[in-house]
Design a protein around this nucleic acid. Structure first.
Lengths: 223, 223
DNA sequence: CCATAATATGACCAGGCGGTCACATTATGA
DNA sequence: TCATAATGTGACCGCCTGGTCATATTATGG
């Protein structure tokens, strides 16, 4: 999640920031609605009121435009997660999980279309460099929780009969699925997460984390 | 999940079963690989070695062919789940969950492409009657586990501080996410579910169910 | 002011799509 | 055997796609 996936042409960099942002916004909107393959450059330029030739002077092709959009997405995700957790250095494992989940909710609220682009990438074939893109997001989660789980295990706050990597899988699965449900209402299992007030949403998150805590902690701790 | 979504034309029904099955198989394969919108009828008829006109004498249009395929999918899913659970009438709530999960694994093993079609429907826009299709599968899960959870709660084998519908959400989320990970290796959180031996897979499932059990049962029960 | 470089434009291209239809082929049954 | 019905065929249609390029427009700086 470090280097850039694709550079726009110099022409794009020279553009006034507002125009650049408009272009990225229109592209995100189209890729979110249609996925990569079905997204139409004609639609994008029509929405922007620019000519197709111009778009091709900003980006080499459809793929470069898409990768630029995805780059922005991963940068934003990193920012949100980091901002949500750095509260203090010594938080409980499950407290951190809760913070990451809240960061995910906040991200989806502010950038719903970016998250849709990500979901489309997950389940569409023939997205350019798809495995690399997905890995950039998922590895971030694994690399983030992995050391935390190892450390929690050392401190004896995780059940010793479940290896840390499995704890990470369960945690990652719950968080990811909760966010999917939040972003795609028909996946929320009747919980109606989408239209929920922030308070009620926090309650749902708390009880989910509570289940994880009880299920994953050694018996006798915390309760 | 009861009535048919779309009828093929009589001409299709008149076809010899082998030819019908070939056509459905080719359609499943194309829809699984491409999703609904990008799937190409030209590809399907090319693969089958029949003319496009023939396909249009079997089905009114692309949508009818797709809905017929999805109908088959939901029928198969129901069969697998029912076959896996009817072992005996008085199984523990979490034992049933484990059985359903195993049924899902078995279904994906036997019909990997059908499951891909379903995943594509989940995250693609402009799939005809998408909400209805998704509801057919998800409501089946909710309607299945809902009464079981209510009953388990009455029997006192679920934590009283978590309402049954939330238990169902958590259960459904874990099962669904596990199956997603099994079908899409890059979603498995480094667990390498896809290439795993049946024995190891059962171990993973058991420890996941164990976490759910510990997390969702009242303290002091089972352990 | 003017030459040059940078940028903007949209008609155009080949290719693929879902869908149609006039026609060829085959099956039926009297 | 032969008329009729059922089924199979693929060239064709209008539409849309990503991408190109000759040309028009604008910015730059001597």
């Amino acid at each position: 999640m470090d280097t850039q996936l694709a550079q726009p042409k110099q022409t794009f960099v020279n553009l006034p920031p507002e125009k650049r942002e408009n272009i990225v916004r229109a592209a995100v909107s189209e890729f979110a609605a249609q996925g990569y393959q079905r997204a139409s450059l004609n639609n994008i330029v029509k929405q922007l009121g620019i000519s197709k030739g111009s778009l091709y002077q900003y980006f080499d092709n459809k793929e470069a435009l898409f990768l630029h959009v995805f780059d922005h997405f991963t940068e934003q995700v990193k920012r949100y997660v980091k901002a949500s957790v750095t509260g203090n250095g010594r938080d409980d494992f499950f407290t951190v999980a809760r913070q990451v989940l809240l960061a995910g909710i906040a991200f989806i609220d502010s950038h719903p279309e970016y998250f849709q682009v990500y979901l489309k990438v997950l389940f569409e074939r023939d997205v350019p460099r798809r495995e690399e893109l997905v890995a950039r997001v998922r590895l971030f989660s694994l690399e983030y929780f992995g050391p935390l789980a190892d450390q929690a295990m050392d401190q004896g706050v995780l059940r010793s009969d479940i290896p840390p990597h499995k704890v990470v899988f369960i945690l990652d699965a719950m968080l990811d699925r909760f966010l999917q449900g939040y972003a795609q209402p028909y996946l929320d299992g009747g919980l109606a997460l989408a239209g929920m007030s922030a308070d009620r949403l926090h309650d749902e998150i708390d009880s989910m984390v509570a289940v994880l805590r009880t299920g994953l902690q050694p018996s006798g701790i915390g309760e």
